[in-house]
């Protein structure tokens, strides 16, 4: 049984027929062809697949594509606008918030939601809000710095 799904991903309308068991992350990567969203675990721990669905950070590995029918989705590919990096992306670059880059898309989108909810986060808040995103390279130090950088620069822009 295949079912039709329609969604808007990074401003582009997409529609396909998919098996109900197709996870949203596989839909995005294999069917739509956006490979910036990564799969790092099987159990919703690592957060490498974090995307925004209707503005909320969600692990795309723990959702079937059919559940996201009608949704508006932002993946890492859709965050920079007109070639201009989002302040969070810029912060990760400025503060060396990444090494191998595999967890980075999920980290950035988790940070995106974090700064929406807590525009001036404390270090503790940043660390608590990153509970669902694992990084094996950075020891988190520069990720915290990157998010702090972004918070400062986003506050400046508002």
């Amino acid at each position: 049984m295949k079912l039709p799904v329609k969604m808007t991903i990074n401003g582009q309308k997409v529609s396909h027929e998919v098996e109900p068991r197709l996870l949203l992350v596989h839909y995005i990567r294999e069917v739509v062809g956006l490979t910036g969203t990564h799969v790092g675990c099987d159990t919703s721990q690592c957060g490498a697949c974090t995307i925004l669905i209707d503005g909320q950070a969600v692990k795309a590995c723990t959702l079937f594509a059919v559940q996201a029918d009608g949704a508006t989705i932002t993946t890492i590919e859709g965050l920079a606008k007109n070639g201009e990096l989002h302040p969070i992306q810029q912060g990760f670059w400025e503060k060396h918030g990444l090494q191998c880059g595999f967890c980075t898309p999920g980290m950035i989108l988790a940070a995106y939601q974090m700064l929406e909810r807590y525009p001036k986060p404390t270090e503790d808040q940043i660390r608590h809000q990153l509970e669902g995103n694992l990084c094996r390279c950075t020891g988190y130090h520069n990720i915290v710095k990157a998010i702090q950088w972004a918070a400062e620069h986003m506050a400046g822009k508002k």
């Binding site: 490979t35 910036g36 590919e77 965050l79 920079a80 992306q89 670059w93 880059g101 898309p105």
Partner: peptide, 18 residues
């Protein structure tokens, strides 16, 4: 700053599974 970062922070890195 790292020269490889722009591709990683925009989701354009290319890993084997990609």
């Amino acid at each position: 700053k790292r020269r490889e970062d722009p591709r990683f922070i925009t989701g354009r890195g290319q890993y084997v599974d990609d």
